[in-house]
Amino acid sequence: MNLMKSIGMAALGIATAAILSGASAMADPLPYPNKVVTLVTHSSPGGGSDVFLREMTKHLGKYIGATFIVENAQGGSGAKAMARVATAPADGSVFYATTPTYIYTSLMSKPQNTYKDLDPLVNIFADSEVIYTRTDGPFKSLKDVIEHAKKERGRWGAANPASLERQAAEQLKRAAGVTPAIVTHEGGGDMMLNVLNGTLDIGIGEIQELRSQLDAGTITLLATFNPERIVEKPDVPTVKESGFDVSLVKFRGLAGPKGIPETTTAIWDEAIKKLLEDPDYKKAYTAEVLVPQFIPHKDYPAFIDNFGSTTEAFLKSTGAIK
């Protein structure tokens, strides 16, 4: 990703925001039953989901005739946000920006309201989970890493404890038949330092957190856990292509209280599909290496349920939950 380009993009984004009021008159936003729609996130201002929502709401007004407000319900790793949304009126005025975190929190800490109390609305993106190493290190491919782990003790990093990254590491370990030490961190930044200074062979994390290092060329991607190659990084193979049958989807979507009317969900189905095609928004999310993965309302609950039960089985098998 070229830096100048991204600055230009930011300027473009701001320009878009400025002309948005004018633009919305030209485009034809779908009529919506609520004037104001609150999008709740568990991340703090400036955090992953927060940035995602604020960027998206800049463009969403073109397709849905409502004003969007981002609300930060931090605390309890999503437990608070889930409670906030589960108890809100089911008229399409409040939604929650979901990530796998809400499934993990539901399972690990059993709050009063869990993911099962929410109605998945639509999926919008899949984040790219990647395996990376330092560029001047000894590893040139995922195979090298696995070979090394077979000969001596490998050292792998996962961005967070009991998370999708950790699950990915465990599954790769099993698929490859190796037993490296898996060191969990609290966030990707901390782990990246340990990959850069050679403490860890590889790190498993989100590509978004690596952008500055990728840009500077100090870090190399070895593989992605996505089912398909990342469009922006065509030479990075998937883990599956590298010979290990592991793939993961770190979803990003919306969920609401149970019982949202079908007319409302239909509006979202249509609007999100159009939104992902929006040229301005496309530029912005491509820069963020977000992979559009639209799942309509009729299929989304099944997807989330499946994700939930897979995760539950994994956590049970490790003894993390009973």
Partner: peptide, 27 residues
Amino acid sequence: FGIPSSNSTAVLLGGLLMHGLIPGPRL
């Protein structure tokens, strides 16, 4: 490095990213 050493710098990182600025040597 783009590595926030505290909560405060994490917010600053969010600010940089919001404006499409990627911290790192090339910044």
